[in-house]
């Protein structure tokens, strides 16, 4: 199969999955007890008789399900996810406001986890099955077993409550105070990284071990290249594409997966937005957010699939 054909097949699959996702999101929220019109009327100050019918007509809720779905999907594709009926703010705008916080949190978490995982993995692969490798394995295995929101609570107790080094809660915007901004994101990003380090470390270690068994490594060693040069220039580089794909997939997963961490640390990101949407029964907002998060995940996967063969010449087809 040519690369173009693989892309075409994946693209068809992508469209099918995205359509399925959007249909499921619309169906689920549509089936919820109580409709938007009733909620709107109940929350207005002086409900008039027949107001429910009026609003229902105005919102197009009297149309059949499939008609409403296609309309909603058409709007969503053009970036119109509707208007939050609590705040009156367009959902796309609300996402745009909150997304930078979540993205910054993710970037910091990725930097921290790669800074820890890459050296550990290289060192463990070099000493495969020796004491150091075993200790690192048990350590990462243990770390992986602790849910990241538990890690964040423990970090808050240690670094905010007991030592008073970092703020326990709250967010400082980057424009206001760069150092304060990084400090306010440090505990949540370390907590997120605690779940990523074991995964990255394991993937890279196994990939390194595989690469180190290749003939060209033996050649590199036999011509007298230093250990450092063999490890970093000849073994680490070809092992990285696999890690890149796992990092990419996880960025997609984490956009919605930061909910508890954001909530615990009081960060105004996508996670807290969805939580408040649910608490306020702001279904339009929740619907738009779930669609956005699921699409981000699917697209991240698709992009990763597409660039993997370009990164690793060995699987170029």
């Amino acid at each position: 199969m040519t690369y173009a054909k693989v892309i075409a097949m994946r693209a068809v699959h992508l469209v099918v999955v995205l359509l399925g996702v959007s249909f499921l999101v619309y169906l689920l929220l549509d089936l919820l007890p109580g409709d938007t019109a009733e909620v709107l009327v109940a929350s207005s100050s002086n409900p008039t008789p027949g107001a429910v019918e009026e609003i229902r007509k105005e919102l197009g809720l009297d149309q059949p399900f499939m008609v409403r779905y296609v309309q909603w999907l058409g709007n969503a594709i053009t970036g119109d996810l509707g208007v939050s009926f609590r705040t009156g703010q367009p959902v796309t705008e609300a996402i745009g406001e909150r997304l930078p916080v979540t993205i910054q949190l993710l970037i910091m978490a990725e930097i921290i986890s790669l800074a820890i995982a890459v050296p550990l993995a290289v060192a463990a692969a070099r000493r495969r099955d020796q004491a150091f490798d075993r200790v690192v394995s048990v350590f990462t295995f243990t770390l992986q077993s602790i849910p990241n929101f538990v890690v964040s609570l423990v970090l808050i107790v240690i670094f905010a409550v007991t030592l008073n080094w970092l703020p326990a809660i709250g967010f400082v915007p980057l424009q206001e105070d760069v150092l304060g901004n990084i400090r306010s994101l440090l505990i949540p990003s370390i907590a997120l990284a605690s779940a990523l380090v074991p995964l990255y470390m394991r993937v890279l270690r196994n990939e390194m071990i595989r690469t180190l068994q290749e003939d060209y490594i033996l050649v590199a060693r036999s011509v007298g290249l230093t250990q450092r040069s063999v490890l970093f220039r000849y073994a680490l580089k070809p092992s990285l594409p696999t890690l890149v794909t796992v990092v990419g997939i996880n960025i997609g997963t984490l956009i919605g997966g930061t909910l508890l961490i954001e909530l615990i640390s009081g960060l105004p990101g996508i996670g807290t937005l969805i939580y408040s949407g649910i608490n306020n029964r702001d279904y339009v907002l929740v619907q738009g957010l779930i669609l956005f998060i699921a699409c981000a995940y699917v697209l991240a996967n698709f992009i990763v699939d597409m660039i993997y063969p370009l990164l690793d010449p060995r699987v170029r087809v």
Binding site: A124, D133, L199, N206, V246, I249, Y308, P309, V315
Partner: peptide
């Protein structure tokens, strides 16, 4: 996260991800 390590990217390419949780020891 568990299943991402089981997916195959392009037919014929090696699977992504680790072996067991304790590595391939």
């Amino acid at each position: 996260t568990k299943t991402t390590s089981q997916r195959t990217v392009v037919p014929g390419s090696p699977p992504i991800g680790g072996r067991g949780l304790l590595g391939r020891s």
